[in-house]
Design a protein around this nucleic acid. Structure first.
Lengths: 153, 153
DNA sequence: CTTAGAACGTTGCACAGACATCTAAACAGC
DNA sequence: GCTGTTTAGATGTCTGTGCAACGTTCTAAG
């Protein structure tokens, strides 16, 4: 605890970080298991499908996508492998850059996403939003907006 | 997006969750890599050492510890294996319950923790606390306090 | 045109983590 | 005491991820 003083942190500050950690892990695990049992869809896969669904023409370059879902390039390669195997995503060559590849959301993928989304949203509601007081959501947003939400280094 | 309406979530609410996700992952990765390069200590290990350091007599039952560091029992077993191999933690039998085991922080472990803590705290300061306005930390704490910080199910 | 360098994505490797299963010990109930 | 149930931890196995290295393609400098 002496160390805290050395770095000028209060115990409260440290606790806030720990709570943030625990809260996120807790919510993420809940979402993961709900999605898994109900739709056989890991959270990471859900995130990928969502990003693709929101992207123009339902497609995104691998590199681009990797940044958005907080995954390393290699991690994304394997994940897309699995999603492609399951027919939820397809790989398509990039016309103007032969190195590039698009990950494209298939119709099957879109359907699966639509099917899983209620579960996902209910989970967020139950484990996160409903527990906050009115107006606090805006507060949290403002707070989080100041944090580094940059891409993976 | 139509699905959002169906579940009564606004886009803002969904965004808040995503930002929380990104913020946590981003900070955690930063801490992890800093601890790794400077002290060869993964974040999970650091958390274990911290919990033990704060526990009475520097010891905690495996099961108890698993809950605090958000790790499965098997995950903790392996992690303690590694920490024991490195001499940072020792296993000790439990007097009044022959099934039980204590994980005990060794002096080496305590030293290593003390050595790594400045790095850890500096990271939290740089990637989290310093980015918030004054008074916001209390706000966040109150908010997070309402979230489910329960043990692993 | 040629060549050095950077960027995109994939692959080999090692490691961490979860789930299910297992053993040993404690705790019921009778 | 004896048996059935529960709990504490450890282990086998499988999945997922990151890092470093690689092949390929694009781009810039000479």
């Amino acid at each position: 605890m002496t160390l805290l003083r050395d770095e000028g942190l209060t115990i409260e500050e440290l606790t806030v970080w720990r709570m943030l950690q625990r809260a996120h892990v807790h919510i993420a695990r809940h979402l993961e298991s709900e999605l898994l049992v109900a739709h056989d869809l890991p959270l990471a896969s859900y995130d990928v499908l969502t990003q693709l669904a929101e992207a123009p023409a339902r497609r995104l370059r691998m590199n681009d996508l990797a940044g958005r879902v907080l995954l390393s390039r290699s991690g994304l390669t394997r994940l897309i492998d699995r999603l492609q195997r399951d027919g939820l995503v397809a790989r398509e060559a990039c016309a103007d850059d032969a190195r590039g590849l698009f990950a494209v959301l298939t119709d099957t993928g879109a359907a699966r996403l639509a099917e899983a989304t209620p579960t996902y949203l209910r989970g967020i509601r139950a484990k996160f939003l409903d527990l906050l007081g009115p107006g606090e959501i805006g507060l949290v947003r403002d707070m989080l907006a100041k944090l580094p939400i940059s891409a993976v280094h």
